[in-house]
C-alpha cells in the first residue's frame, strides 16, 4: 500500500516535470510548423532583406522584419540603459545599506511594481509620459520608442532588483571585511568589491530583465506608435516584433501567407528570447571561484 502511493507520487512528479519540457517542445513545434508554409512560399531571406513589412500590398507584398527587429532592439536597449544602473543601485542599497525595516518596506513595493498589469502601464504611458516627452523634446507627439523604452525599463526593474540583490547578498562577507579593514569606506567597498564580485549574478539579472523587455507586448503596442517605417531616433515611432503580431493576428485570414508569416515573426522572437535566457542561465550557474 505504502509503496503504491510512493509510486503514484513519483509518477505524478515525473509527469509534471516532463510536461514542462513537452510544453516547450510543443510551442517550438507549433511555431515551426506554422512558419513553414510562409518560409516555403516567400523564403527565409525575404524576411531579412531591407524594405518594409507590407504583407497586404497589392501586386508585390513584402515581408521584411528588419525594422521590427530594430524597433525591438531600441526599446530593449533603451529600457536596459536606465533599468540596469538603477536596478543595481537599488539592489546594492537594499542588500548593503538599508536597515531591516527599510528592506521590509521596499521589497513588497518592488513586488507590487512587478504585479502591475502591462496594459495599465500603457495607459500611464499615454496620458502621463507621452505629453511629458512631447513637451520636453518639443515634438508633436510623445508616442515613440523612448516612451516604450522607459515603460519597459520600469517593468524590467523588479526582476533586475530582486536578482541583483540576491547576487550581492551572496557575496561572502569576508570580502567586505577585507576591504573595510584596509580603510575602505562603505561606498568604496560596495562599488569596488561587492558589486564586482557579484558581477555574473548581476549580468544574469540584466539578461533576465532583457528577456522580459524583448517579449513585452501590450505596453509597447500602446505607446510606441507602431509605424512600420525605419526609425531614425528614439523620438521616432517604432513597431516591435511582438507588437506586430498582436496588431495583425486579429485581422489576418486564417491559413494565408500573411498568417504564417506572423508565425515566422514569433519564431524569431522565440529564438531571441531563448538565447537571452540561455545566456542568463549559464551566467547564473557559473560557479564563482570561492576558496573553501
Amino acid at each position: 500500500m505504502h509503496s503504491r502511493t510512493e509510486l503514484i507520487m513519483k509518477i505524478l512528479f515525473w509527469a509534471s516535470g516532463i510536461a514542462i519540457i513537452l510544453f516547450l517542445v510543443g510551442i517550438l513545434f507549433t511555431l515551426l510548423s506554422n512558419s513553414i508554409p510562409a518560409l516555403g512560399e516567400i523564403g527565409i531571406g525575404s524576411f531579412f532583406t531591407s524594405g518594409l513589412w507590407r504583407p497586404g500590398a497589392y501586386g508585390e507584398p513584402t515581408y521584411s522584419i528588419n525594422n521590427f527587429i530594430l524597433g525591438t532592439f531600441m526599446v530593449t536597449v533603451g529600457a536596459l540603459a536606465f533599468a540596469v544602473p538603477m536596478g543595481v543601485a537599488a539592489a546594492a542599497y537594499l542588500a548593503e545599506i538599508a536597515s531591516p525595516w527599510e528592506r521590509e518596506f521596499f521589497k513588497p513595493i518592488v513586488e507590487v511594481l512587478a504585479g502591475i498589469p502591462s496594459v495599465v502601464l500603457g495607459f500611464i504611458g499615454l496620458v502621463v509620459l507621452a505629453p511629458l516627452i512631447a513637451r520636453f523634446f518639443n515634438i508633436p507627439s510623445g508616442i515613440n520608442a523612448l516612451n516604450g523604452a522607459i515603460l519597459v525599463g520600469i517593468m524590467a526593474l523588479p526582476t533586475i532588483i530582486t536578482l541583483a540583490e540576491d547576487a550581492i547578498t551572496a557575496v561572502p562577507k569576508e570580502y567586505r571585511h577585507a576591504s573595510l579593514a584596509l580603510g575602505g569606506t562603505q561606498w568604496q567597498t560596495i562599488w569596488k568589491v561587492t558589486v564586482p564580485a557579484a558581477f555574473s549574478g548581476i549580468t544574469a539579472a540584466a539578461m533576465l530583465g532583457m528577456g522580459r523587455a524583448i517579449g513585452e507586448t501590450m505596453t509597447v503596442l500602446m505607446v510606441t506608435g507602431n509605424m512600420i517605417a525605419r526609425p531614425e531616433s528614439f523620438l521616432d515611432s517604432v513597431r516591435t516584433l511582438s507588437a506586430n503580431i498582436a496588431i495583425e493576428i486579429g485581422d489576418v485570414a486564417f491559413g494565408s501567407v500573411h498568417f504564417h508569416a506572423l508565425f515566422v515573426v514569433g519564431l524569431v522572437l522565440f529564438i531571441i528570447t531563448f538565447i537571452v535566457n540561455l545566456l542568463a542561465d549559464i551566467l547564473i550557474h557559473r560557479k564563482p571561484e570561492v576558496n573553501k
Partner: peptide
C-alpha cells in the same frame, strides 16, 4: 592598523 583574517580572503581579482 592593518588586519589579516583567519580565512585567507583575497578579493576575486
Amino acid at each position: 592598523v592593518g588586519m589579516v583574517f583567519q580565512q585567507p580572503n583575497p578579493f576575486p581579482k
